[in-house]
């Protein structure tokens, strides 16, 4: 199995590290590669879009001609897993909590709507234990200026909820081979979410 991690900006190597550990724990032959150019998409069984600034990742991807091929590959079925900014990139629609809607380049492979910086600024970034469908027991959610998933349509399904103020918002969603989390499993020592996705996409 060959999994790419979009390597233009953000927490790239943290995912490479987690993938290697997940492969090891699953006892699978697996390879994790960094994707920076269109030709790196060749032969991938899945791609992780990491956390970072979604605006930066989108702008650079578009400028070097990676956005279109990546969008096409994911829409044609290349399984994708996005964390935080990666979840924003996978969403069909994104707006900012304070600034509102700004045009930014997205991959848009999942029928979910996200609000960027939903929980506030870095000062409001937090950790909390979550329940995630498909993962036994609790999972430590690390939220850093994270988005919330406020809507899932079609066959997209929210698999983890978090109470925020008076409302319940989505923090993880699944749609076919795609997975999006608001939080950062790659900042924990816990590979269960990576394994959940890998097992889900194994042919």
């Amino acid at each position: 199995m060959k999994i790419g991690v979009l390597g233009l900006q953000g927490g790239v190597y943290e995912h490479v590290y987690m993938l290697r550990r997940a492969f090891q724990e699953l006892g699978w032959q697996g390879e994790a590669v960094v994707v920076k150019k269109p030709q790196h998409l060749h032969g991938l069984d899945g791609i992780i879009v990491p956390g970072g600034e979604s605006t930066t990742i989108g702008i650079v991807a578009r400028r070097i001609g990676l956005l279109e091929p990546l969008r096409d590959a994911v829409k044609e079925g290349l399984p994708a897993f996005g964390t935080c900014a990666g979840a924003v990139m996978l969403a069909a629609k994104a707006r900012d909590r304070v600034v509102g809607e700004k045009s930014q380049p997205l991959i848009g492979a999942m029928s979910i709507e996200v609000i960027r910086n939903y929980f506030g600024r870095q000062r409001e970034s937090f950790e909390v234990d979550l329940e995630v469908e498909g993962v036994e027991g609790r999972f430590r959610g690390v939220f850093i200026r994270s988005p919330a998933i406020v809507k899932a349509e079609g066959d997209a399904k929210i698999i983890s909820w978090l109470k925020s103020g008076d409302s319940l918002v989505g923090v993880a969603a699944i749609q076919g081979p795609h997975l999006a989390t608001s939080f950062h499993p790659e900042l924990t020592g816990d590979t269960r979410i990576h394994k959940l996705w890998l097992q889900n996409i194994k042919r």
């Binding site: 233009l8 953000g10 927490g11 850093i144």
Partner: peptide
């Protein structure tokens, strides 16, 4: 927490 403080700059990398 320490994890979110050390984590913030991780998402600035490459930028």
């Amino acid at each position: 927490t320490l994890r979110v403080k050390l984590g913030f700059p991780v998402y600035q990398k490459g930028g």
